[in-house]
Amino acid sequence: MTIGAETLIQRASQDSNAFEQLFKQYMPLVGKVIKTYHLRNYTRDDWLQEARIAMLKAVEHFDGSQGSQFGAYYKMVLVSHIRSLLRKQFAQKRTVDKQYVLADVPILEAFQQDLVRGDTVTVTLNAELADFFADLSPTEQTALNALLHPAQETTTGPARNVVQRIRKKMMRYLYE
C-alpha cells in the first residue's frame, strides 16, 4: 500500500472530503458486491448508504501495519454488513412485516379521523374517491362503513374478510 493511500484512509475517519474520495475510489467494488444481494424495498441510494456505513466501519478499524490491503478488508466488512441486514430482514419475528404495505392502514386511519372531525379534507376525499366507492359491492360498502365507524356498526365475520379486499382495491385505486 502506498503512503498516499494509507494517509487517505487515516484522514477518511475525520475528513468527509477524504471519505468521499476514498468511497468513490471503491465504487466499482461496491457495485460488484451489491449486485449479488437483494433486500426488499432497497433503492440504489439505500445500498450506497449501507456501503458508506460499512466504509466508515472499515476506516475506523483498519490496521495496515501488517501489510494487509484496505480493499480486501473493506469488501469483507461490506459483505458482513449486508449479511447482517439480510439476517435482520429474514428474522422469524419480522416475517409478518413482509405481508403488509406500509401505506395501507395509515391511509384508512387518517380517512377515518377526517370523517369524524368533518374537515374540508373529507369533502375533497369524498369527491376524489367517489369512483372508488361506486365500484364497491354492497357487502364491501357495509364492511368499509363498519371499519370507518366502529361505534355505529359491529363488524361481522364475513365483513372482516371483506376488509382485506377493500384495502387491496383502495391501494390499487390510489396507485393509479
Score class of each variant (00 low, 15 high):
residue 167 R to P: 12
residue 133 F to N: 06
residue 104 D to F: 02
residue 131 D to R: 07
residue 132 F to N: 02
residue 30 V to F: 04
residue 42 Y to A: 10
residue 80 S to R: 14
residue 96 V to I: 13
residue 59 V to P: 06
residue 55 M to R: 05
residue 142 T to A: 15
residue 118 G to L: 11
residue 44 R to L: 01
residue 22 L to Q: 06
residue 141 Q to T: 09
residue 106 P to K: 00
residue 6 E to C: 03
residue 23 F to P: 04
residue 81 H to W: 04
residue 171 M to Y: 02
residue 32 K to W: 01
residue 11 R to S: 08
residue 113 Q to V: 07
residue 142 T to S: 12
residue 136 L to N: 05
residue 27 M to A: 04
residue 135 D to M: 04
residue 144 L to H: 09
residue 152 Q to I: 08
residue 167 R to C: 15
residue 79 V to C: 02
residue 173 Y to Q: 04
residue 27 M to V: 14
residue 168 K to L: 15
residue 176 E to M: 11
residue 6 E to Q: 09
residue 99 Q to L: 14
residue 13 S to N: 03
residue 170 M to V: 06
residue 57 K to Q: 12
residue 21 Q to G: 02
residue 162 V to L: 02
residue 110 A to E: 09
residue 17 N to W: 06
residue 19 F to M: 08
residue 40 R to N: 14
residue 176 E to F: 11
residue 80 S to I: 08
residue 118 G to D: 09
residue 115 L to N: 07
residue 134 A to I: 06
residue 78 L to E: 10
residue 175 Y to G: 12
residue 22 L to R: 03
residue 165 R to N: 12
residue 113 Q to I: 07
residue 112 Q to H: 03
residue 45 D to R: 10
residue 175 Y to E: 15
residue 133 F to S: 00
residue 62 F to I: 11
residue 172 R to G: 02
residue 73 Y to K: 00
residue 60 E to Q: 10
residue 36 T to E: 04
residue 100 Y to N: 02
residue 100 Y to P: 00
residue 93 K to Y: 04
residue 95 T to R: 04
residue 117 R to L: 14
residue 100 Y to H: 11
residue 140 E to T: 11
residue 40 R to V: 14
residue 52 R to V: 06
residue 173 Y to C: 05
residue 122 T to Y: 06
residue 152 Q to T: 07
residue 94 R to C: 00
residue 39 L to D: 15
residue 39 L to F: 09
residue 132 F to C: 06
residue 159 A to V: 03
residue 40 R to H: 14
residue 138 P to M: 00
residue 101 V to E: 10
residue 128 E to I: 02
residue 66 Q to E: 13
residue 11 R to K: 14
residue 166 I to G: 02
residue 51 A to V: 10
residue 7 T to V: 10
residue 119 D to S: 13
residue 103 A to D: 15
residue 40 R to C: 14
residue 33 V to A: 08
residue 118 G to W: 10
residue 7 T to M: 11
residue 33 V to Y: 05
residue 142 T to Q: 10
residue 171 M to C: 00
residue 39 L to H: 06
residue 38 H to L: 05
residue 82 I to Q: 01
residue 150 P to K: 07
residue 27 M to I: 11
residue 141 Q to V: 12
residue 78 L to S: 06
residue 109 E to Q: 09
residue 81 H to Y: 10
residue 155 T to F: 01
residue 134 A to N: 12
residue 148 L to S: 01
residue 23 F to V: 13
residue 140 E to Y: 01
residue 150 P to M: 03
residue 36 T to D: 00
residue 95 T to G: 04
residue 23 F to T: 15
residue 107 I to F: 15
residue 9 I to S: 05
residue 142 T to M: 10
residue 91 A to F: 00
residue 54 A to G: 04
residue 125 L to C: 11
residue 49 Q to S: 13
residue 144 L to D: 02
residue 39 L to I: 15
residue 8 L to F: 01
residue 160 R to V: 05
residue 66 Q to H: 12
residue 38 H to K: 14
residue 114 D to F: 01
residue 162 V to Y: 05
